[in-house]
Simulated scan of single mutants.
Amino acid sequence: MSALLRLALRAVARAGRFDVREDYQRVRALQRRLAALPTARYRTPTWDTFSDAPDGHRVPVRVFAPAERRREDLLLFFHGGGWVTGDIESYTPACATMADLTGCHVASVDYRLAPEHPFPAGLEDCYGVARGLLEDPGRAGLTDPDRIVLVGDSAGGNLAAAVSLLLRESGHRVPSRQILLYPVTHFDHDPATSPFESVRRLGDRYRLTSTEVQDYLDLYVPYPALRRSRLVAPLMAEDLSGQPDTLLLSAGLDLLCDEGEAYGRALAEAGNRVRIHRLEEALHGVITLPRFARPLKEAYEVIDEFLEQGP
């Protein structure tokens, strides 16, 4: 990437920054409006359903069917947005793209958001949906639970990793595969104290900043002592054995790059099958880019190869 393009990206990122604590409700509303326009950019058939969370409440799920179904896999998707923004409406274009480009059904989970519902509410919702489908895949029209693949981007990647850990620890069936897209895996994003070079190098340059990540974490986990929990920071887990085959995609211009890759290496060191791929010229949030964007095309080439290997 040229120096001029990097400068342009930094300028755009800075112009679009906001105060997470003060503006999160306005961001939610803006995301929904942007996702709805123009409606012609996706035509993937969808239907809405519900799944039961452990405490009995209903979790909305939106299912996307590809224009051409090429695989029997179901991608169970947890959206990003720092556990505070994002929902099945704002992620509808991204999930429609995911369904079409993978040839899979995609089930997007509308988990509860902080600060109204802090940790572990969102995780409980994702866990409940995943556990229910893995125990009874017939609810999703499947006969083989190994066809269920967990997918999450950013905070959603964090939730997918935490769900896999929680399933194994609870003695329940673990998914055969997971795709973690530039996930949050650590609790410290302060450039002065973070152990990761990408936080120090990229923490104030592009789309996502260190301050924003820390603000998101503060809203998601109001009690600082809990932020070191393996279910908030999966990289802190002492036992990473028995986890799904994992594809970990990182973005080279993302402050989360190093911690995501560190989690992939930790999974591999624990005996799991892992592929780590860095999208060198990509910013945080690749999966939400338009279909013609080169980083998105590269991402789906790698995802397609991973899915092609099967369970």
Rank of each mutant, 00 (worst) to 15 (best):
M1V: 07
R6I: 08
L7S: 15
V12K: 14
A13I: 11
A15M: 07
G16A: 12
F18L: 10
F18N: 10
D19N: 14
D19P: 04
E22C: 01
D23E: 15
D23K: 08
Y24L: 09
Q25E: 15
V27M: 06
R28M: 06
A29G: 07
L30M: 13
L30N: 12
R33N: 09
L34W: 05
A36E: 13
P38L: 15
T39G: 08
R41F: 13
T49W: 07
T49Q: 12
F50P: 00
D52G: 01
A53P: 01
P54C: 06
P54Q: 02
D55L: 11
G56T: 03
V59P: 00
R62E: 07
R62D: 04
R69E: 13
R70F: 00
R71N: 09
E72V: 01
E72H: 08
L74V: 13
F77Y: 15
F78R: 04
G80W: 01
G81H: 03
G82I: 01
V84L: 03
T85I: 15
D87G: 10
E89S: 11
S90N: 11
T97S: 13
M98K: 05
D100N: 13
L101A: 06
C104M: 06
S108L: 15
Y111H: 13
R112K: 08
E116N: 07
H117Q: 10
Y127A: 02
R131G: 03
R131N: 03
G132D: 06
G132H: 05
G132P: 02
L133W: 04
D136Q: 12
A140H: 07
L142W: 12
V151D: 06
V151C: 11
G157D: 00
G157F: 00
G157K: 02
V163F: 02
L166P: 00
L166A: 07
L167M: 05
S170E: 09
R173K: 12
V174M: 06
L180K: 02
L180S: 05
H186V: 09
H186F: 15
A192Y: 10
P195L: 11
E197M: 10
S198A: 07
S198K: 11
D204T: 15
R205K: 14
L208P: 08
T209L: 07
S210N: 05
T211C: 14
V213H: 02
Q214G: 09
L217D: 03
V221Q: 01
P222K: 01
Y223V: 04
P224K: 07
L226W: 04
L226M: 06
R227Q: 00
L231C: 08
L231Q: 02
L235V: 12
D239G: 08
L240Q: 05
S241K: 11
G242D: 09
Q243W: 03
D245N: 11
L247F: 14
L248I: 12
L249G: 08
A251Q: 05
D254G: 09
L255Q: 04
C257P: 00
E259M: 13
E259N: 11
G260A: 05
G260S: 06
A262R: 14
A262Q: 13
Y263P: 07
L267D: 08
R273M: 09
R275M: 08
H277F: 14
L279S: 04
A282C: 10
A282L: 07
G285I: 03
F292M: 05
F292Y: 12
R294C: 00
R294Y: 08
R294W: 09
L296S: 09
L296V: 09
K297L: 15
K297A: 14
E298F: 01
E298Q: 14
Y300W: 10
D304C: 11
F306V: 03
E308K: 09
